[in-house]
């Protein structure tokens, strides 16, 4: 029932990096996500796009790591953008009010395009 959690970085471009998550984003996965993202930020990829299309479940720990990443990106004058948020996670982000802080796009490409200054997809 528990999917193996995967973290990929399919795309980097200057300060931009896409971090794609798939599986159950819970307390078991959260530390690794956080660590990977902070590593990207530390290596100059301060504008992160989290592709959440593969996330089947997200609990408070998952949200926690998103908040942590958002903070670190902000401290590095960067940003965290969410892309392809599954419905349930979308509701969770809404309930927790996180959607007001984290810009969201329908897909990673849309998020990238927006981050690159082409704001037509927002």
């Amino acid at each position: 029932m528990t999917d193996a959690f995967h973290i990929d970085v399919p795309h980097t471009d200057g300060a931009l990096a896409v971090i794609a998550l798939s599986g159950e984003f819970d307390i078991a996965a959260a530390p690794a996500v956080r660590a990977r993202a902070l590593e990207l930020i530390a290596t100059g990829h301060t504008d992160l796009v989290a592709d959440l299309s593969g996330v089947t479940f997200c609990d408070s720990s998952g949200l926690g790591s998103l908040v942590g990443i958002w903070r670190c990106a902000k401290d590095a004058d960067g940003s965290l953008t969410l892309a392809a948020i599954p419905d349930r996670l979308s509701r969770l982000l809404s309930v927790t009010g996180m959607d007001t802080f984290l810009p969201a796009y329908s897909s990673a490409d849309a998020a990238l395009a927006a981050r690159q200054g082409n704001r037509t997809t927002a």
């Binding site: 908040v67 309930v95 009010g97």
Partner: peptide, 13 residues
């Protein structure tokens, strides 16, 4: 409407 995570954002409402 508008309640946010507590302790995450200084600007939280």
């Amino acid at each position: 409407k508008g309640g946010m995570l507590v302790g995450a954002f200084a600007e939280a409402a």
